[in-house]
């Protein structure tokens, strides 16, 4: 049982930035941004390729996040200039990113087992130190994200998600906000991709498939469990971050639980898909009731 918990926590840890990014797009910007499927791989691919070329892992990690932000900015550009709706723009970006990722990586899979990573020194000492380093990086990203959401810019992003027309009437440039919002959520997804690649030891062209859906399902589950306990919206940002963490942890707990029951891996996605559909249905029912 302890092994199950440890596996759950370590896997959830690497995907927390992704969950925060999806929380930004789905809950705050109120858009389903499918770009994340592609930018998760983009982050992993840019990091893996740069590190294998001898670039410092720190620089490679920054470059991975920047690449993710650019992918998000491209999705915002498609919405603004191409007049494509948010969902389709995300699907289109993700589609294009498959080729971009292949071009960057040069092959479908890059092995990182013998390459340096942000955490290799810490893991060389022992596992506890290694995971503490991962935890510290995720915490820095989460705190930065929290600080942003608590700022005036965070309020503008929420207002953009709620009523962009009214915000535009206040004289704000909503396209800048759109670009910032989509850039930031994909930056976080790319950071997650780069962290995951370092933990699992490789970057794979297909590692992002279904990530958006997993993230949305997880944060809906988390919100479902946490929000009824919250009486005031002053604490909304903290609640959202906690929901993202709890949701993603429960998803991996279920995933690992299924694997331990020797479920045939062929049916794993089918079972998880049904589970996510149930979460989404529960959330819709609850929204109707409220």
């Amino acid at each position: 049982m302890i092994g199950l918990f440890i596996a759950t926590l370590t896997q959830a840890l690497t995907l927390i930035p992704l969950a925060l990014g999806i929380n930004l797009s789905y809950t705050i910007l109120r858009a389903t941004d499918m770009t994340i499927d592609g930018s998760f791989v983009l982050g992993a691919g840019v990091f893996a390729q740069l590190v294998s070329l001898g670039v410092s892992p720190y620089l490679a990690f920054l470059a991975a996040m920047l690449a993710g932000a650019l992918a998000g900015a491209f999705t915002a550009f498609l919405q603004h200039k191409g007049k494509v709706d948010a969902l389709l723009a995300g699907i289109l970006s993700s589609f294009i990113l498959y080729s971009v990722n292949m071009a960057i990586m040069g092959r479908p899979n890059i092995n990182l087992l013998n390459s340096p990573s942000l955490f290799s020194t810490a893991f060389a000492q022992n596992n506890l130190m290694g995971w503490s380093a991962v935890c510290a990086l995720v915490l820095i990203l989460a705190l930065g994200f929290y600080a942003l959401l608590q700022s005036r810019l965070g309020l503008y992003l929420r207002a953009f998600g709620d009523n962009p027309k009214l915000l535009a009437r206040q004289g704000l440039n909503i396209e800048t906000l759109r670009t910032l919002g989509f850039g930031l959520n994909n930056l976080l997804a790319a950071a997650s991709g780069a962290i995951t690649a370092q933990i699992i030891g490789y970057a794979d062209i297909n590692m992002g498939v279904g990530m958006t859906l997993v993230g949305i399902g997880a944060i809906i589950l988390g919100q479902h469990l946490i929000l009824p306990c919250i009486k005031t919206h002053y604490l909304r940002t903290r609640t959202e971050l906690l929901s993202a963490f709890i949701g993603i942890a429960i998803y991996f707990f279920i995933l690992n639980g299924l694997l331990r029951f020797n479920i045939n891996p062929i049916y794993l996605k089918l079972m998880l898909g049904v589970l996510l559909a149930l979460f989404l249905r529960a959330a819709t029912q609850k929204a109707k009731l409220s």
Binding site: L155, K165, G171
Partner: peptide, 30 residues
């Protein structure tokens, strides 16, 4: 921005006047 500073419109639809998914205090801030 300048125009918004000088002119404020209220319509019959709350959706045009307020951010419905934000708190009252956040609406004040915006």
């Amino acid at each position: 921005k300048n125009r918004a500073h000088h002119i404020h419109t209220l319509t019959q639809s709350a959706q045009d006047n307020l951010f419905l998914n934000l708190t009252l205090f956040e609406n004040y801030q915006l």
